[in-house]
Write a protein that binds this DNA or RNA. Structure first.
Length: 483
RNA sequence: GCUCCCAUCGUCUAGAGGCCUAGGACACAUCCCUUUCACGGAUGCGACAGGGGUUCAAAUCCCCUUGGGAGUACCA
Protein backbone atom coordinates (compact mmCIF):
# COMPACT_ATOMS: atom_id res chain seq x y z
CA UNK A 1 0.00 0.00 0.00
CA UNK A 2 1.09 3.56 -0.59
CA UNK A 3 2.50 5.64 2.19
CA UNK A 4 -0.20 6.64 4.62
CA UNK A 5 -0.04 10.30 5.45
CA UNK A 6 -2.74 12.22 7.25
CA UNK A 7 -2.92 15.69 8.66
CA UNK A 8 -4.74 18.01 10.97
CA UNK A 9 -4.96 21.54 9.66
CA UNK A 10 -6.38 23.91 12.24
CA UNK A 11 -6.59 27.63 11.71
CA UNK A 12 -5.22 29.61 14.63
CA UNK A 13 -8.20 31.89 15.01
CA UNK A 14 -9.05 30.51 18.41
CA UNK A 15 -7.89 27.99 20.98
CA UNK A 16 -7.96 24.38 19.89
CA UNK A 17 -11.61 23.39 19.76
CA UNK A 18 -12.64 20.08 21.23
CA UNK A 19 -14.12 19.12 17.85
CA UNK A 20 -10.85 19.82 16.11
CA UNK A 21 -9.16 17.79 18.80
CA UNK A 22 -11.38 14.86 17.97
CA UNK A 23 -10.60 15.19 14.29
CA UNK A 24 -6.91 15.35 15.17
CA UNK A 25 -7.35 12.26 17.32
CA UNK A 26 -8.95 10.23 14.56
CA UNK A 27 -6.22 11.26 12.17
CA UNK A 28 -3.61 10.35 14.73
CA UNK A 29 -5.22 7.00 15.38
CA UNK A 30 -5.48 6.25 11.70
CA UNK A 31 -1.81 7.06 11.22
CA UNK A 32 -0.79 4.97 14.24
CA UNK A 33 -2.87 2.00 13.21
CA UNK A 34 -1.54 2.05 9.66
CA UNK A 35 2.02 2.98 10.49
CA UNK A 36 1.64 6.26 8.68
CA UNK A 37 2.65 9.83 9.35
CA UNK A 38 0.62 12.45 11.14
CA UNK A 39 1.21 15.97 9.91
CA UNK A 40 0.30 19.26 11.55
CA UNK A 41 -0.31 22.20 9.29
CA UNK A 42 -1.28 25.62 10.56
CA UNK A 43 -3.73 27.30 8.22
CA UNK A 44 -3.19 30.94 8.93
CA UNK A 45 -3.96 32.41 5.53
CA UNK A 46 -6.47 34.69 7.13
CA UNK A 47 -3.90 36.91 8.73
CA UNK A 48 -6.52 39.14 10.29
CA UNK A 49 -7.97 36.44 12.46
CA UNK A 50 -4.87 34.40 13.12
CA UNK A 51 -2.41 34.95 15.89
CA UNK A 52 0.61 33.32 17.43
CA UNK A 53 -0.98 32.83 20.81
CA UNK A 54 -3.58 30.57 19.30
CA UNK A 55 -0.92 28.68 17.40
CA UNK A 56 0.84 28.05 20.68
CA UNK A 57 -2.41 26.94 22.24
CA UNK A 58 -2.87 24.44 19.42
CA UNK A 59 0.59 23.01 20.00
CA UNK A 60 0.10 22.81 23.75
CA UNK A 61 -3.33 21.25 23.58
CA UNK A 62 -2.36 18.64 21.04
CA UNK A 63 0.70 17.73 23.06
CA UNK A 64 -1.27 17.56 26.28
CA UNK A 65 -3.60 15.10 24.62
CA UNK A 66 -0.66 13.02 23.52
CA UNK A 67 -1.34 13.65 19.85
CA UNK A 68 2.22 14.11 18.73
CA UNK A 69 2.82 14.97 15.12
CA UNK A 70 5.61 13.69 12.92
CA UNK A 71 5.87 16.77 10.79
CA UNK A 72 4.82 20.32 11.54
CA UNK A 73 5.88 23.96 11.71
CA UNK A 74 7.95 23.43 14.84
CA UNK A 75 9.49 20.07 14.07
CA UNK A 76 9.88 20.54 10.35
CA UNK A 77 9.73 17.75 7.80
CA UNK A 78 10.33 16.96 4.18
CA UNK A 79 7.37 18.82 2.78
CA UNK A 80 7.47 22.14 4.61
CA UNK A 81 6.90 24.86 5.32
CA UNK A 82 3.96 23.72 7.40
CA UNK A 83 2.57 27.13 8.07
CA UNK A 84 0.37 28.37 5.29
CA UNK A 85 1.40 31.99 5.62
CA UNK A 86 4.90 30.93 4.65
CA UNK A 87 3.65 29.22 1.55
CA UNK A 88 2.09 32.17 -0.24
CA UNK A 89 4.67 32.11 -3.01
CA UNK A 90 3.86 28.58 -4.09
CA UNK A 91 0.18 29.01 -4.96
CA UNK A 92 0.35 31.46 -7.87
CA UNK A 93 2.25 29.10 -10.11
CA UNK A 94 -0.45 26.50 -9.76
CA UNK A 95 -3.06 29.12 -10.46
CA UNK A 96 -1.22 30.07 -13.63
CA UNK A 97 -0.96 26.43 -14.59
CA UNK A 98 -4.71 26.08 -14.35
CA UNK A 99 -5.33 29.26 -16.31
CA UNK A 100 -2.96 28.15 -19.03
CA UNK A 101 -4.66 24.81 -19.29
CA UNK A 102 -8.07 26.43 -19.46
CA UNK A 103 -9.24 25.18 -16.10
CA UNK A 104 -9.40 28.63 -14.58
CA UNK A 105 -9.95 32.20 -15.64
CA UNK A 106 -9.77 35.74 -14.39
CA UNK A 107 -13.00 37.30 -13.29
CA UNK A 108 -13.49 41.04 -13.12
CA UNK A 109 -16.99 41.16 -11.72
CA UNK A 110 -17.49 43.75 -9.02
CA UNK A 111 -19.03 43.10 -5.64
CA UNK A 112 -22.12 44.95 -6.81
CA UNK A 113 -22.55 42.81 -9.87
CA UNK A 114 -22.19 39.69 -7.82
CA UNK A 115 -24.63 40.98 -5.22
CA UNK A 116 -27.13 41.64 -7.96
CA UNK A 117 -26.80 38.10 -9.26
CA UNK A 118 -27.36 36.73 -5.80
CA UNK A 119 -30.41 38.85 -5.15
CA UNK A 120 -31.79 37.76 -8.44
CA UNK A 121 -31.33 34.14 -7.52
CA UNK A 122 -33.08 34.64 -4.23
CA UNK A 123 -35.94 36.45 -5.92
CA UNK A 124 -36.42 33.58 -8.31
CA UNK A 125 -36.01 31.03 -5.55
CA UNK A 126 -33.11 29.49 -7.30
CA UNK A 127 -29.76 28.39 -6.01
CA UNK A 128 -27.16 31.03 -6.56
CA UNK A 129 -24.61 30.02 -9.12
CA UNK A 130 -22.12 32.44 -10.60
CA UNK A 131 -23.18 33.51 -14.09
CA UNK A 132 -19.83 32.74 -15.67
CA UNK A 133 -19.94 36.17 -17.21
CA UNK A 134 -16.15 36.39 -17.28
CA UNK A 135 -15.55 32.87 -18.42
CA UNK A 136 -14.93 33.76 -22.04
CA UNK A 137 -13.61 37.27 -21.94
CA UNK A 138 -11.58 38.35 -24.92
CA UNK A 139 -8.11 39.68 -24.52
CA UNK A 140 -9.38 43.16 -25.29
CA UNK A 141 -12.09 42.98 -22.65
CA UNK A 142 -9.61 41.88 -20.04
CA UNK A 143 -7.23 44.68 -20.91
CA UNK A 144 -10.04 47.16 -20.72
CA UNK A 145 -10.95 46.01 -17.20
CA UNK A 146 -7.36 46.20 -16.09
CA UNK A 147 -7.10 49.69 -17.51
CA UNK A 148 -10.10 50.60 -15.39
CA UNK A 149 -8.08 49.48 -12.40
CA UNK A 150 -10.13 46.39 -11.64
CA UNK A 151 -8.29 43.67 -9.82
CA UNK A 152 -9.42 40.22 -10.91
CA UNK A 153 -10.03 37.13 -8.89
CA UNK A 154 -9.35 33.77 -10.45
CA UNK A 155 -12.20 31.36 -10.77
CA UNK A 156 -12.13 27.66 -11.41
CA UNK A 157 -14.08 26.70 -14.52
CA UNK A 158 -16.34 23.95 -13.25
CA UNK A 159 -17.08 21.41 -15.98
CA UNK A 160 -20.69 20.85 -17.02
CA UNK A 161 -22.69 17.68 -16.65
CA UNK A 162 -20.19 15.91 -14.55
CA UNK A 163 -21.12 13.65 -11.71
CA UNK A 164 -18.47 13.85 -9.07
CA UNK A 165 -18.44 10.63 -7.13
CA UNK A 166 -16.19 9.55 -4.35
CA UNK A 167 -16.17 6.84 -1.78
CA UNK A 168 -16.08 8.32 1.67
CA UNK A 169 -14.34 6.21 4.31
CA UNK A 170 -17.09 6.80 6.80
CA UNK A 171 -20.12 7.86 4.79
CA UNK A 172 -19.85 5.57 1.81
CA UNK A 173 -20.55 6.71 -1.72
CA UNK A 174 -21.18 10.45 -2.12
CA UNK A 175 -22.30 12.12 -5.33
CA UNK A 176 -22.43 15.69 -6.57
CA UNK A 177 -23.80 17.24 -9.73
CA UNK A 178 -21.23 19.63 -11.17
CA UNK A 179 -23.97 21.76 -12.69
CA UNK A 180 -24.90 22.83 -9.18
CA UNK A 181 -21.44 24.05 -8.40
CA UNK A 182 -20.69 27.57 -9.55
CA UNK A 183 -17.30 28.64 -10.80
CA UNK A 184 -15.68 29.27 -7.45
CA UNK A 185 -12.86 31.60 -6.63
CA UNK A 186 -9.45 30.05 -6.15
CA UNK A 187 -7.40 33.21 -5.92
CA UNK A 188 -8.57 36.41 -4.32
CA UNK A 189 -8.03 39.83 -5.82
CA UNK A 190 -5.12 40.35 -3.46
CA UNK A 191 -3.46 37.32 -5.05
CA UNK A 192 -3.78 35.06 -2.04
CA UNK A 193 -5.39 31.65 -2.43
CA UNK A 194 -8.81 30.81 -1.10
CA UNK A 195 -9.19 27.98 1.37
CA UNK A 196 -10.39 25.42 -1.14
CA UNK A 197 -7.41 26.01 -3.35
CA UNK A 198 -4.76 26.24 -0.68
CA UNK A 199 -5.81 22.98 0.98
CA UNK A 200 -5.59 21.09 -2.25
CA UNK A 201 -2.17 22.43 -3.10
CA UNK A 202 -0.89 21.83 0.41
CA UNK A 203 -2.32 18.37 0.72
CA UNK A 204 -0.98 17.51 -2.68
CA UNK A 205 2.49 18.84 -2.00
CA UNK A 206 2.55 17.24 1.41
CA UNK A 207 1.53 13.95 -0.17
CA UNK A 208 -1.45 13.53 2.10
CA UNK A 209 -3.06 10.19 1.32
CA UNK A 210 -6.16 10.34 3.49
CA UNK A 211 -8.11 13.39 4.48
CA UNK A 212 -10.10 12.85 7.63
CA UNK A 213 -12.09 15.90 8.67
CA UNK A 214 -15.47 17.14 9.81
CA UNK A 215 -18.51 16.65 7.62
CA UNK A 216 -18.84 20.39 7.28
CA UNK A 217 -16.31 19.90 4.51
CA UNK A 218 -18.30 17.44 2.45
CA UNK A 219 -19.49 19.95 -0.08
CA UNK A 220 -15.99 21.37 -0.40
CA UNK A 221 -14.79 17.94 -1.35
CA UNK A 222 -16.43 18.05 -4.76
CA UNK A 223 -14.67 21.30 -5.59
CA UNK A 224 -11.40 20.00 -4.32
CA UNK A 225 -11.61 16.83 -6.35
CA UNK A 226 -12.12 18.95 -9.44
CA UNK A 227 -8.93 20.84 -8.65
CA UNK A 228 -6.94 17.67 -8.06
CA UNK A 229 -8.10 16.35 -11.40
CA UNK A 230 -7.34 19.56 -13.26
CA UNK A 231 -3.89 19.48 -11.79
CA UNK A 232 -3.45 15.90 -12.83
CA UNK A 233 -2.80 14.95 -9.24
CA UNK A 234 -3.86 11.80 -7.49
CA UNK A 235 -7.05 12.33 -5.52
CA UNK A 236 -6.63 11.33 -1.86
CA UNK A 237 -9.15 9.26 0.04
CA UNK A 238 -11.65 11.15 2.15
CA UNK A 239 -13.35 10.40 5.42
CA UNK A 240 -15.91 12.77 6.90
CA UNK A 241 -16.74 12.68 10.57
CA UNK A 242 -20.04 13.71 12.13
CA UNK A 243 -19.99 16.89 14.16
CA UNK A 244 -20.00 17.35 17.88
CA UNK A 245 -23.22 19.00 18.99
CA UNK A 246 -24.23 20.65 22.22
CA UNK A 247 -27.14 19.31 24.27
CA UNK A 248 -29.51 21.55 22.35
CA UNK A 249 -28.29 19.89 19.15
CA UNK A 250 -26.69 22.99 17.80
CA UNK A 251 -23.03 23.22 17.00
CA UNK A 252 -20.94 23.25 20.14
CA UNK A 253 -19.92 26.85 20.63
CA UNK A 254 -18.75 29.28 23.26
CA UNK A 255 -22.21 30.03 24.50
CA UNK A 256 -22.44 26.42 25.66
CA UNK A 257 -19.46 26.92 27.95
CA UNK A 258 -16.10 25.31 27.47
CA UNK A 259 -15.18 24.46 23.90
CA UNK A 260 -11.42 24.62 23.87
CA UNK A 261 -9.31 21.77 25.11
CA UNK A 262 -7.47 24.24 27.32
CA UNK A 263 -10.78 25.31 28.89
CA UNK A 264 -11.47 21.75 29.93
CA UNK A 265 -7.99 21.30 31.28
CA UNK A 266 -8.33 24.47 33.30
CA UNK A 267 -11.53 23.13 34.82
CA UNK A 268 -9.67 20.08 35.97
CA UNK A 269 -10.34 17.53 33.29
CA UNK A 270 -7.47 15.16 32.68
CA UNK A 271 -6.22 15.08 29.12
CA UNK A 272 -6.28 11.28 29.17
CA UNK A 273 -9.96 11.35 30.04
CA UNK A 274 -10.67 13.98 27.42
CA UNK A 275 -9.05 11.92 24.68
CA UNK A 276 -10.78 8.76 25.79
CA UNK A 277 -14.15 10.45 25.99
CA UNK A 278 -13.91 12.17 22.66
CA UNK A 279 -12.80 8.92 21.00
CA UNK A 280 -16.05 7.37 22.18
CA UNK A 281 -17.99 9.97 20.26
CA UNK A 282 -18.38 7.91 17.14
CA UNK A 283 -16.02 5.07 17.83
CA UNK A 284 -16.73 1.93 19.85
CA UNK A 285 -14.07 -0.37 21.26
CA UNK A 286 -14.43 -3.88 19.89
CA UNK A 287 -14.23 -5.51 23.32
CA UNK A 288 -16.73 -3.20 24.97
CA UNK A 289 -14.14 -1.91 27.42
CA UNK A 290 -14.53 1.83 27.28
CA UNK A 291 -11.69 3.02 29.45
CA UNK A 292 -8.71 2.80 27.18
CA UNK A 293 -5.39 4.51 26.70
CA UNK A 294 -4.44 6.23 23.49
CA UNK A 295 -2.26 3.31 22.47
CA UNK A 296 -4.93 0.76 23.17
CA UNK A 297 -7.39 2.76 21.15
CA UNK A 298 -4.94 3.05 18.29
CA UNK A 299 -4.54 -0.70 18.12
CA UNK A 300 -8.25 -1.25 18.02
CA UNK A 301 -9.06 1.63 15.71
CA UNK A 302 -10.87 1.27 12.39
CA UNK A 303 -11.93 4.39 10.53
CA UNK A 304 -14.47 2.37 8.61
CA UNK A 305 -16.39 1.58 11.77
CA UNK A 306 -16.86 5.14 12.88
CA UNK A 307 -20.43 6.28 13.32
CA UNK A 308 -21.52 8.59 10.56
CA UNK A 309 -23.95 10.63 12.57
CA UNK A 310 -23.45 13.66 14.73
CA UNK A 311 -23.02 13.18 18.43
CA UNK A 312 -24.05 15.22 21.40
CA UNK A 313 -21.39 16.26 23.84
CA UNK A 314 -22.72 15.37 27.23
CA UNK A 315 -20.89 16.13 30.46
CA UNK A 316 -22.26 13.23 32.51
CA UNK A 317 -20.12 10.66 30.84
CA UNK A 318 -17.07 12.90 30.63
CA UNK A 319 -17.39 13.52 34.35
CA UNK A 320 -17.65 9.84 35.10
CA UNK A 321 -14.69 9.08 32.91
CA UNK A 322 -12.61 11.83 34.46
CA UNK A 323 -13.41 10.39 37.86
CA UNK A 324 -12.23 7.00 36.69
CA UNK A 325 -8.91 8.46 35.61
CA UNK A 326 -8.54 10.39 38.84
CA UNK A 327 -9.05 7.19 40.80
CA UNK A 328 -6.50 5.30 38.77
CA UNK A 329 -3.84 7.94 38.43
CA UNK A 330 -0.47 7.65 40.10
CA UNK A 331 -0.75 9.51 43.39
CA UNK A 332 2.37 11.60 42.95
CA UNK A 333 1.30 12.70 39.50
CA UNK A 334 -2.19 13.42 40.71
CA UNK A 335 -0.93 15.48 43.62
CA UNK A 336 1.13 17.62 41.29
CA UNK A 337 -1.89 18.19 39.08
CA UNK A 338 -4.03 19.08 42.04
CA UNK A 339 -1.58 21.41 43.75
CA UNK A 340 -2.37 24.47 41.63
CA UNK A 341 -6.03 24.28 42.64
CA UNK A 342 -5.13 23.85 46.29
CA UNK A 343 -2.59 26.66 46.31
CA UNK A 344 -5.24 29.18 45.44
CA UNK A 345 -7.07 28.47 48.67
CA UNK A 346 -4.73 26.99 51.20
CA UNK A 347 -1.25 27.36 52.61
CA UNK A 348 0.30 24.12 51.46
CA UNK A 349 3.39 24.60 53.61
CA UNK A 350 1.32 23.40 56.55
CA UNK A 351 1.67 19.88 55.25
CA UNK A 352 4.63 17.81 54.21
CA UNK A 353 4.71 16.36 50.74
CA UNK A 354 3.87 12.95 52.17
CA UNK A 355 0.91 14.34 54.08
CA UNK A 356 -0.29 16.17 51.03
CA UNK A 357 -0.15 13.02 48.96
CA UNK A 358 -1.94 11.14 51.68
CA UNK A 359 -4.62 13.79 51.77
CA UNK A 360 -5.09 13.56 48.01
CA UNK A 361 -5.18 9.80 48.26
CA UNK A 362 -8.02 9.80 50.77
CA UNK A 363 -10.05 12.53 49.10
CA UNK A 364 -9.71 11.60 45.44
CA UNK A 365 -12.54 9.12 45.28
CA UNK A 366 -15.58 11.35 44.88
CA UNK A 367 -13.90 13.83 42.56
CA UNK A 368 -15.17 14.29 39.06
CA UNK A 369 -12.98 17.26 38.28
CA UNK A 370 -9.66 18.20 39.86
CA UNK A 371 -10.98 21.52 41.15
CA UNK A 372 -13.59 19.68 43.21
CA UNK A 373 -11.01 18.80 45.79
CA UNK A 374 -10.86 22.36 47.09
CA UNK A 375 -14.22 22.12 48.82
CA UNK A 376 -13.42 18.75 50.35
CA UNK A 377 -10.28 19.62 52.26
CA UNK A 378 -10.51 22.87 54.29
CA UNK A 379 -10.22 21.05 57.60
CA UNK A 380 -6.76 19.79 56.75
CA UNK A 381 -5.55 23.36 57.02
CA UNK A 382 -5.54 25.91 59.83
CA UNK A 383 -6.12 25.33 63.46
CA UNK A 384 -9.84 25.79 63.74
CA UNK A 385 -12.60 24.37 61.66
CA UNK A 386 -15.59 25.96 60.00
CA UNK A 387 -18.79 24.21 60.82
CA UNK A 388 -21.37 23.47 58.22
CA UNK A 389 -24.91 24.62 58.85
CA UNK A 390 -26.59 23.00 61.82
CA UNK A 391 -23.74 20.63 62.47
CA UNK A 392 -23.27 22.03 65.94
CA UNK A 393 -26.93 21.89 66.88
CA UNK A 394 -27.81 18.62 65.24
CA UNK A 395 -24.68 16.60 65.72
CA UNK A 396 -22.16 18.03 68.14
CA UNK A 397 -24.29 19.40 70.92
CA UNK A 398 -26.22 16.26 71.59
CA UNK A 399 -25.83 14.34 74.78
CA UNK A 400 -24.47 11.33 72.98
CA UNK A 401 -21.87 13.27 71.04
CA UNK A 402 -20.63 15.06 74.06
CA UNK A 403 -20.21 11.79 75.86
CA UNK A 404 -18.23 10.39 72.95
CA UNK A 405 -16.01 13.41 72.63
CA UNK A 406 -15.14 13.48 76.30
CA UNK A 407 -13.96 9.93 76.20
CA UNK A 408 -12.08 10.45 72.96
CA UNK A 409 -10.02 13.39 74.24
CA UNK A 410 -8.91 11.34 77.18
CA UNK A 411 -8.10 8.18 75.29
CA UNK A 412 -6.41 10.00 72.43
CA UNK A 413 -3.67 11.20 74.69
CA UNK A 414 -2.10 7.78 74.49
CA UNK A 415 -2.70 7.11 70.78
CA UNK A 416 0.06 7.10 68.24
CA UNK A 417 -1.16 9.47 65.54
CA UNK A 418 1.59 8.50 63.18
CA UNK A 419 0.39 4.96 63.03
CA UNK A 420 -2.56 4.86 60.67
CA UNK A 421 -3.45 1.26 61.26
CA UNK A 422 -3.33 1.71 64.97
CA UNK A 423 -5.57 4.76 64.77
CA UNK A 424 -8.00 2.76 62.76
CA UNK A 425 -8.08 0.12 65.44
CA UNK A 426 -8.44 2.62 68.23
CA UNK A 427 -11.47 4.10 66.55
CA UNK A 428 -12.84 0.63 66.27
CA UNK A 429 -12.41 0.22 70.01
CA UNK A 430 -14.24 3.45 70.65
CA UNK A 431 -17.09 2.34 68.44
CA UNK A 432 -17.29 -0.99 70.21
CA UNK A 433 -17.21 0.69 73.59
CA UNK A 434 -20.22 2.87 72.83
CA UNK A 435 -22.04 0.19 70.97
CA UNK A 436 -22.32 -1.66 74.25
CA UNK A 437 -24.07 1.40 75.62
CA UNK A 438 -26.56 1.27 72.80
CA UNK A 439 -24.97 4.00 70.71
CA UNK A 440 -24.72 3.25 67.03
CA UNK A 441 -21.25 3.18 65.49
CA UNK A 442 -22.48 5.73 63.03
CA UNK A 443 -23.33 8.20 65.75
CA UNK A 444 -20.02 7.71 67.45
CA UNK A 445 -18.14 8.46 64.30
CA UNK A 446 -20.32 11.38 63.44
CA UNK A 447 -19.43 13.08 66.68
CA UNK A 448 -15.72 12.73 66.06
CA UNK A 449 -15.97 13.69 62.44
CA UNK A 450 -18.03 16.75 63.16
CA UNK A 451 -15.66 17.90 65.85
CA UNK A 452 -12.54 17.71 63.72
CA UNK A 453 -13.89 18.51 60.27
CA UNK A 454 -17.01 20.52 60.96
CA UNK A 455 -18.91 18.23 58.65
CA UNK A 456 -20.89 15.06 58.64
CA UNK A 457 -19.17 13.45 55.75
CA UNK A 458 -15.81 13.32 54.08
CA UNK A 459 -12.64 11.28 53.99
CA UNK A 460 -11.82 8.37 56.27
CA UNK A 461 -11.51 9.67 59.82
CA UNK A 462 -8.40 7.82 60.85
CA UNK A 463 -6.66 9.22 57.78
CA UNK A 464 -7.77 12.72 58.65
CA UNK A 465 -6.48 12.25 62.19
CA UNK A 466 -3.20 10.93 60.91
CA UNK A 467 -2.73 13.93 58.67
CA UNK A 468 -3.75 16.70 61.03
CA UNK A 469 -1.89 15.14 63.95
CA UNK A 470 -2.56 14.76 67.61
CA UNK A 471 -2.28 18.40 68.68
CA UNK A 472 -4.82 19.72 66.25
CA UNK A 473 -7.05 16.77 66.91
CA UNK A 474 -7.15 17.26 70.65
CA UNK A 475 -7.51 21.00 70.26
CA UNK A 476 -10.50 20.64 67.97
CA UNK A 477 -12.20 18.01 70.05
CA UNK A 478 -11.76 20.04 73.21
CA UNK A 479 -13.26 23.02 71.44
CA UNK A 480 -16.28 21.00 70.55
CA UNK A 481 -16.97 20.04 74.11
CA UNK A 482 -19.37 22.28 75.95
CA UNK A 483 -18.48 21.84 79.53
C1' G B 1 -34.77 28.55 -1.40
C1' C B 2 -31.15 24.94 -3.35
C1' U B 3 -27.51 20.84 -2.46
C1' C B 4 -25.57 17.26 0.74
C1' C B 5 -25.33 14.40 5.33
C1' C B 6 -27.77 11.96 9.44
C1' A B 7 -31.90 9.23 12.13
C1' U B 8 -31.76 2.63 17.79
C1' C B 9 -33.03 3.99 25.27
C1' G B 10 -32.46 11.14 28.01
C1' U B 11 -26.95 10.81 26.07
C1' C B 12 -22.72 7.87 23.63
C1' U B 13 -23.50 3.57 21.02
C1' A B 14 -23.73 -2.39 19.56
C1' G B 15 -26.50 -4.15 15.54
C1' A B 16 -23.76 -4.98 8.28
C1' G B 17 -31.91 -9.73 6.68
C1' G B 18 -33.12 -14.59 10.72
C1' C B 19 -28.38 -15.08 16.69
C1' C B 20 -33.02 -9.18 18.80
C1' U B 21 -38.67 -10.94 23.89
C1' A B 22 -32.73 -5.12 20.48
C1' G B 23 -26.86 -5.67 23.87
C1' G B 24 -23.33 -2.35 26.58
C1' A B 25 -21.74 2.43 28.89
C1' C B 26 -23.21 7.19 31.25
C1' A B 27 -27.34 9.32 33.78
C1' C B 28 -31.59 8.07 36.91
C1' A B 29 -34.16 4.74 40.77
C1' U B 30 -33.95 0.83 44.45
C1' C B 31 -31.13 -2.53 47.29
C1' C B 32 -26.35 -4.47 49.27
C1' C B 33 -21.52 -3.06 51.29
C1' U B 34 -20.10 0.80 54.85
C1' U B 35 -17.61 5.24 60.38
C1' U B 36 -20.21 9.43 56.59
C1' C B 37 -19.88 11.29 51.39
C1' A B 38 -18.24 8.38 47.81
C1' C B 39 -16.32 3.97 45.47
C1' G B 40 -17.76 -0.90 44.32
C1' G B 41 -21.61 -4.71 43.48
C1' A B 42 -26.76 -6.15 42.20
C1' U B 43 -31.40 -5.09 40.18
C1' G B 44 -34.63 -1.92 37.68
C1' C B 45 -36.29 2.13 34.30
C1' G B 46 -35.57 3.00 29.20
C1' A B 47 -35.17 3.06 22.18
C1' C B 48 -35.52 0.74 16.51
C1' A B 49 -39.06 8.83 14.27
C1' G B 50 -43.75 7.80 11.12
C1' G B 51 -45.79 5.55 6.71
C1' G B 52 -45.35 2.56 2.57
C1' G B 53 -42.84 -1.29 -0.08
C1' U B 54 -39.08 -5.71 -1.13
C1' U B 55 -38.71 -10.64 1.40
C1' C B 56 -40.80 -16.82 3.99
C1' A B 57 -38.26 -13.17 7.39
C1' A B 58 -36.33 -6.01 8.26
C1' A B 59 -33.72 -2.08 13.44
C1' U B 60 -30.94 -3.85 9.26
C1' C B 61 -32.50 -3.08 1.87
C1' C B 62 -35.67 0.68 -1.23
C1' C B 63 -39.14 4.96 -1.44
C1' C B 64 -41.88 8.96 0.82
C1' U B 65 -42.84 12.08 5.06
C1' U B 66 -41.02 14.25 9.37
C1' G B 67 -37.09 15.85 12.36
C1' G B 68 -31.95 17.33 13.13
C1' G B 69 -27.17 18.89 11.10
C1' A B 70 -23.94 21.00 7.34
C1' G B 71 -22.79 23.78 2.99
C1' U B 72 -24.39 27.51 -0.25
C1' A B 73 -18.36 33.82 0.67
C1' C B 74 -12.57 37.24 -2.55
C1' C B 75 -13.80 32.68 6.02
C1' A B 76 -11.30 28.57 7.09
Amino acid sequence: MENIRVRIAPSPSGNLHIGTARTALFNYLFAKKNKGKFVLRIEDTDLERSNAEYTQNIYDSLKALGLNWDEGPDVGGEYGPYQQSERFDIYPKYVQKLIDAGFAYECFCTQEELEAEKEDAIKNKKAYIYSEKCRNLTKEQREEFIKQGRKPVVRFAVPKNREIVFHDLVKGELKFDSNLIGDFVIQKSNNTPTYNFAVVIDDMEMKISHIIRGEDHISNTAKQILIYEALGAEVPKFGHLGMILATDRSKLSKRHGATAVSDFVKQGYLSEALVNFVALLGWTPSDGEEIKSLNEIAEDFDITKISSSNSVFEYDKLNWMNGQYIKKMDIKKLTEKIKPYLEQNYDLSELTQAQLEHMVEVTREPLTVLADIVKDVPFFFGKDVDFEDKVKEDVLNTEVSQKVLKKVVEDAQTWDFNNLEDLHEKLGDIRAFFKEQGIKPKETMWAIRAAITGRTHGADISAVMNIIGKDKFIYRVKNAIIS
